[in-house]
């Protein structure tokens, strides 16, 4: 079963580079891109543009940027953790920031991992490859919550 990756990223360059990096790492899974926090939540809660989506098919991992238009990454994370249907959803913070306060807040709100995007593209590709391997192959996805719709 090939599972989805949800990439929440507003910068089209970064989107392109991330997709490229996954591609170069031979990760062929479907990658859904959300341009801002609201869209990400719409996808995960199956509403708005994504109304009617089967919420039993949640992404294997959400790659979440912190700095986003409309609703920022931490807000998205907070909403996910507050909702029983998405409380266990694996979320990896993928960001430029190495500010201590960002890391602390992310982990506090229940991020599963925190990865800083390297500037060197080769390093970035390596990071993407390892993320894909880990979250798509090695990691066991959390069980679906009961009564989740």
């Amino acid at each position: 079963m090939s599972r989805i990756i949800l990439l929440v990223e507003d910068n089209p360059d970064d989107v392109a580079l991330t997709l490229r990096a996954f591609k170069r790492s031979n990760i062929r899974n479907e990658i859904v891109v959300a341009g801002d926090g609201v869209e990400a939540l719409d996808y995960l809660f199956a509403r708005g543009r994504y109304a009617g989506r089967d919420t039993h098919q949640q992404p294997a991992v959400v790659l979440l940027d912190l700095k986003l238009p409309r609703l920022d990454g931490l807000e998205v994370l907070r909403s996910l953790r507050a909702n029983p249907g998405t409380a266990l959803q694996p979320v990896v913070i993928l960001t430029s920031s190495d500010e201590e306060q960002d890391m602390v807040m992310s982990y506090k709100l229940g991020a599963n991992s925190y990865v800083r995007k390297p500037v060197d593209f080769d390093e970035f590709v390596e990071a993407a490859r390892r993320l894909g391997l880990y979250w798509l192959l090695l990691n066991e996805a959390p069980p679906l919550p009961r009564g989740a719709t």
């Binding site: 910068n11 360059d13 970064d14 580079l17 490229r20 912190l66 700095k67 960001t95 430029s96 920031s97 190495d98 500010e99 995007k117 390297p118 500037v119 060197d120 593209f121 080769d122 970035f124």
Partner: peptide, 21 residues
């Protein structure tokens, strides 16, 4: 500082990434 940390690095990443590509 926060903006610098985030926003200044993003274009650099693009410059490096696309040069590499």
């Amino acid at each position: 500082s926060y903006s610098v940390s985030h926003d200044l690095r993003a274009p650099l990443r693009s410059i490096d990434g696309f040069s590499r590509i």
